[in-house]
Nucleic acid binder design. Structure first.
Lengths: 232, 232
DNA sequence: GCAAAAGTGTTTTGTCTACACCCATGA
DNA sequence: TCATGGGTGTAGACAAAACACTTTTGC
């Protein structure tokens, strides 16, 4: 039975399958995407998303994790599949089907050596340079998805440092939505979900009075990750 | 440059890429999914989603359209990509990456000969039999996505006949959400979007009084398809 | 005239938005 | 003492939810 199956399948075309990663980070002011300067042809020297090919004995998800690790050195990153881009002409070099993933990382968690190696650089999402192939559409779609995701999930957990001020969280949401938000309404809504814990410690870097730090309540956060809570 | 690119790429593994279609229909009472009895090994005789392989010179989207046409005979069907399933072990017969698509069709638009040929059958979504491989997860994910989609888009246009009664539209939404909805509130909301036009014609099949038929205002519907309108 | 489905409004509740002032502190 | 960012509450608008009776007509 197994053998017959294999025989049956051998008749079909095989394609190269790639993974491309849209990596978002937040520096406290701007939402940024991590791009690399492509080191090989075609389009050598152009800006591109970090990508790579799926191996025969490798899950597609695993390939995404591997590729992300190549660039960041980080193994456990928030990541989700975005979309499969499958046009025959999308890559002029060869027929390559690409599965795009988007990842959220803490922007200071970077490995300078790896960044150097791949000529990686953070770009504010409002100032993305020309990208190869269909990478610009991937990035735009990822931006949409992040927005949608942020509306029912407090993505701050993935993008902010362990402890952060309410202003930082607000700034993150303003960056994601590219508009100003009302400080009081935002605070109210996010606190009402109960996923934040206020610490007895203040960040005195940006003001004389100092702003309280918050941390995410990991347990509640995980619960919400499954069910979701609309708060935007 | 082109040549170098090709050379570069030749080193990577090639995989078979399949497309599987989750096809939803609505018979006036129940939401149903179209399944086929698999005609070849492995898992011959088991129920399965309609699927096929992507050809080397074919867009992945085009493959989905082709495969859907094979089964239904219909060329212009509402369809969207759902997710790419890429585990190495998902298909025991071979390494196959599958891109799942979900489609909405009018249940009476069927071609008996083609259905016969593929041993196709409609199953109520509450009574889906065991399916091969990971097709059950595909179907569950599609159900989720349909629900989400229906919340900001009047999917009725794709699933109902050209003219339909308010009760039919309500029944569709009750089937999608698997719960009862308030008739008055539903009517109010859907009418307030302005995408329905009331005809001067009644369906007298289900009651003595008769229920007015409605049609979708195609233009407004298309506008809403882009922007979306929350009405659930 | 009665059974069976169609059609229709109002009240209440909760949520979202807009909006401005005092507080604490370091310099 | 003053300049700077931090922190907080309320009123009005709007949307959502709950809820029941009258209408039509074929039998």
């Amino acid at each position: 039975m197994r053998r017959m199956g294999i025989k049956q399948y051998e008749d079909h075309d095989r394609l190269m399958v790639a993974v491309d990663c849209i990596i978002f980070g937040f520096d406290g002011k701007e939402l940024k995407a991590l791009l690399i300067k492509r080191g090989f042809e075609p389009e050598q020297g152009k800006w591109s998303l970090m990508g790579g090919f799926v191996k025969k004995q490798e899950n597609v998800d695993a390939a995404a994790v591997r590729i992300l690790k190549q660039l960041t050195g980080l193994a456990s990153i928030y990541m989700e599949q975005l979309y499969c881009f499958g046009d025959t002409k999308r890559d002029p070099g060869a027929r390559v089907v690409s599965v795009a993933y988007f990842a959220l990382i803490r922007i200071d968690n970077y490995n300078a050596a790896l960044f150097e190696k791949h000529h990686a650089k953070w770009f504010p999402i409002a100032k993305i340079p020309a990208l190869i192939f269909d990478h610009k559409s991937m990035l735009l779609l990822a931006k949409e998805r992040l927005r949608q995701k942020a509306s029912y999930l407090p993505v701050g957990f993935e993008l902010l440092p362990d402890k952060f001020t309410m202003q930082q969280l607000l700034a993150l949401y303003e960056a994601i939505y590219e508009r100003e938000l009302d400080k009081r309404n935002f605070t109210k809504k996010i606190l009402s979900t109960g996923i934040l814990q206020k610490l007895n410690e203040k960040d005195k870097l940006t003001s004389k009075k100092g702003a309280f730090y918050f941390v995410f309540d990991k347990e509640k956060y995980d619960r919400i990750s499954h069910e979701g809570v609309g708060f935007m």
